[in-house]
Amino acid sequence: MTKYSAARFALLFVVLAGILLSPVGVFAQVPTPSDDDVNRVAKQLYCPVCENIPLDVCPTQACQEWRDLIRLKLSEGWSDEQIRQYFAQQYGDRVLSEPPRSGLNWLVYVLPPVIILAGAVLVARVLQSMRKPVLPAAKVDVPLAEDDLKRVEEELRKVD
């Protein structure tokens, strides 16, 4: 083998190795989002045009365009949360099915349990105050009146 052909062989080896080890296959393909994928995100959103109808079941063209946009974002590899954030930034927090947990919105999450807890405490206290007073042990052993005692003895005799 001449020096020239050895160099050619080495070059060919390097090129082949480069092709085989190239990172072409490294990039993961994002699968085409299915309708279920789109609806999974869409059901967390509400279109302001047709209020109170979740996006996944809203029949208007505006909602269809929003679903198309969700599909586009999913195909670009966006996460559900990223898409939700995008829609909130574009159209306002009112399009979200759940208000974001920030600022005064925290009241929505904090107040109901606090009110329920306070109500439970109130009910417990009222029930406690309505309970019959418990007699002290010493006062339970009260002697019966004479008439009552006679009546009890008569009743017992009848039973015998």
């Binding site: 206290r125 105050s129 007073p133 007699l135 006062k139 009260v142 002697p143 019966l144 009146a145 004479e146």
Partner: peptide, 15 residues
């Protein structure tokens, strides 16, 4: 004759 004892005492209301 002993009169029956009445039990009007209740637990003090907690404020």
């Amino acid at each position: 004759m002993e009169t029956p004892q009445t039990h009007s005492e209740t637990a003090p209301a907690r404020k």
